[in-house]
Amino acid sequence: MNRPAPHTLRTVTGDLPVGSVGGPVLAHEHLVLDLDRRGDGAAVLHPELHAAAVTAELATLRVESGLALVVELTCRGMGRDIGALARISRDARVAVVAATGWYYEPFHTPEIDAGDVEQLTGVLVREIEGGIDGTGIRPGVLGEIGSHGDVPTPSEAKVLRAGARAAVRTGLSVATHAQLGRGGLAQLELLTGEGLPAHRIGIGHQDLLDDPGVHRELAAEGAYVAFDTVGKTSYQDDRTRLRLLLALVEAGHADRALLSCDISRHGYLLDEGGQGYGHLFRSFLPRLRAAGADDDLVDLLTRRNPLRFLTGASEEDN
Rank of each mutant, 00 (worst) to 15 (best):
G267E: 08
G14K: 01
R90K: 02
T176I: 13
L172M: 10
A162K: 01
I201E: 00
E127M: 06
L280H: 13
R282K: 12
G41S: 13
R76E: 01
S155L: 06
T135A: 05
E156Y: 03
G163R: 01
P212A: 10
E64M: 15
G312S: 09
S264E: 09
V18P: 10
Y235H: 06
L69M: 06
P286K: 07
A251M: 11
P197S: 12
F309I: 07
R182C: 00
R169V: 02
G77I: 03
V12G: 11
Q179H: 11
I112M: 04
G140N: 10
A254D: 12
R256Q: 14
G278P: 10
W102I: 02
S65A: 15
R138F: 07
G77R: 07
A59H: 05
L270E: 06
T11Q: 05
D133L: 02
S20G: 13
V71E: 03
L120N: 03
P286C: 08
L196T: 09
D113Q: 07
L285Q: 04
P47H: 02
L191V: 08
Y268P: 03
G23H: 12
S147T: 05
A43S: 14
R10C: 15
R80I: 12
T11I: 14
P212S: 07
A114L: 03
E127Q: 12
L172A: 09
E189K: 08
V54N: 02
L35K: 10
V214F: 00
Y224D: 13
G66A: 15
E129V: 06
G149C: 06
E221W: 14
E194V: 01
I145C: 11
R37L: 15
A157V: 01
S20P: 00
T153Q: 03
T55I: 11
I137L: 01
R200D: 02
S234D: 14
D238F: 13
D207S: 07
A52H: 02
Q275Y: 14
G222V: 01
L9T: 10
E316S: 13
F284W: 09
L61F: 08
H279M: 10
A167C: 09
A313M: 12
Y268L: 08
P17L: 11
E221M: 15
L269F: 14
T11D: 09
W102Y: 13
R90V: 00
L270F: 03
L270I: 08
E57D: 04
L172S: 06
D271R: 03
L269P: 12
V214N: 00
G140D: 08
V97C: 06
L259E: 11
D271S: 08
G140L: 12
G134Q: 07
G274L: 06
L9K: 06
D34H: 10
S20M: 13
V249Q: 13
T153E: 01
L172C: 07
T60V: 14
G171A: 07
R303T: 15
T229G: 01
A220K: 04
R243G: 04
D294R: 03
D271P: 00
P106S: 11
G66Q: 15
A186H: 13
E118D: 14
V298P: 06
T302F: 04
P154K: 04
I203V: 12
S234P: 10
T176M: 10
R169D: 11
E194N: 02
M1N: 09
L244K: 10
M1D: 11
L191I: 09
T311N: 14
H205E: 04
A157K: 03
R287T: 09
